[in-house]
Design a protein around this nucleic acid. Structure first.
Lengths: 219, 219
DNA sequence: TCCTTTCTGTTGCCAAAGCAACGGAAGTAT
DNA sequence: ATACTTCCGTTGCTTTGGCAACAGAAAGGA
């Protein structure tokens, strides 16, 4: 297939490279592209992973199946998203399964080839490693932030902390959040109706203003 | 000072290298060693970080100071521990401060030199990069696991999930946990007395057995 | 050994939040 | 326009777990 190099330029791993450099690199790495049907598993939980994947099209989810049969969405990647970067680097078996929630095309990058110098001394190889490390670090701090929300003891403080972070990230007094109420409740680890109730209280008390997904912090 | 290469051999970053290789590498990287007095700050929150640090002696804590003046311990490293690995890799300013809780000696490794080939083509340079990525990934999944505890809605399930993981990690029906009650409560994000109460209930119901830090899961 | 400090378990009270159920609003397909 | 589905706010009831205070056990120092 024809590689959509334009998509790759906007991925975290290939950021800052020219189309030509990316083509060169993918040749160096001998990266295969695979297609997965809707619902197909890319890796199962418990396996060891040796590649990272870049989603070229479709949706790839990291999911966790619990003992009681319930399943939990850990992360979702769409076109341009990277997965497996934090799995291939560890010796541990994967705690999550990777599944194509919609039919998906994936470009795989083998860890060994990323780390090793390919012998042609491509300078973007260094850049790739830097980008990979950055991707891992960014994901770490993202998780760290979520952990801070869950560490707040009161629902009110969870909400306010989250909204303040949102405002800071998006800059501007009005901002929108990327979740439905149900999703936000799950993200903050609380009951949906309790979340709605507390949001209403905050609005009554003049601390925030909101409608649906649009929010504003008043004080 | 004389570098304690023996300590370094047991660190995650230099794992799998001979003493000689480590010496060579440290020369390559031109890694400085610094000493910090008790309470001294290594980095302040908000700064950008360009080095990782290996603790040679003493204690280095990653802490977070809240608006209300309270402070929160995020991570602690003692001799052989690595910090800053996940800070230097991101463009974001550091969300935590690094502080020497006890007088400490630290070996610093500059990110640029880790990523770049030093020109002498040392093969352990590759190994170092691999170890660094692995360290980052391991820390990520550790955080992920903690997040799973906090995502459990009931105290009972948090406790059981944690204890089951402990048993799995330590292998054997009896196991000990590395926290006091107070610390465990904070780790699981619950009130200490509520934790004690639930532990007692679990014991009364014959689900677990414990005394102080020694635990056993009965069913 | 004795004193002091820290750690742990226990209990009563109460507020915060989970749960379930309902109804209206918004969005989508026919 | 209508029917249907999803999303959101509201409310009453109930439970969980936070909080405070106390007492006994363990640990550490003089």
């Amino acid at each position: 297939m024809e590689l959509p190099v334009a998509i790759l330029q906007n991925t975290s791993l290939f950021r800052g490279m020219t189309e030509e450099e990316i083509r060169h690199l993918i040749t160096c790495l001998a990266s295969p592209v695979r297609r997965y049907g809707k619902g197909a598993f890319i890796w199962h939980a418990g396996e060891k992973v040796s590649h990272a994947g870049i989603v070229l099209s479709g949706i790839v989810d990291a999911v966790q199946y619990h003992d009681d049969g319930s399943m939990h969405l850990v992360a979702r990647q769409t076109a341009g998203g990277v997965f497996g970067d934090l799995l291939m680097a560890t010796d541990q078996p994967s705690p999550v399964s990777l599944q194509a929630t919609e039919e998906a095309e994936v470009l795989f990058l083998p860890l060994d080839e990323i780390l090793t110098d390919c012998g042609r001394r491509c300078p973007f190889h260094i850049r790739l490693r830097h980008n990979l490390l950055q991707e891992a670090a960014d994901k770490y701090w993202q998780l760290h932030r979520r952990l801070q929300y869950l560490s707040e003891q009161s629902l009110r403080r969870r909400i306010l902390l989250y909204l303040q972070d949102c405002r800071r990230d998006m800059g501007g007094s009005y901002f929108t959040i990327p979740y439905t109420r149900e999703e936000l409740a799950k993200f903050l680890g609380v009951n949906r109706s309790a979340l709605s109730r507390e949001l209403s209280r905050l609005q009554k008390e003049g601390i925030i203003d909101f409608h649906r997904n649009s929010f504003r912090i008043l004080q």
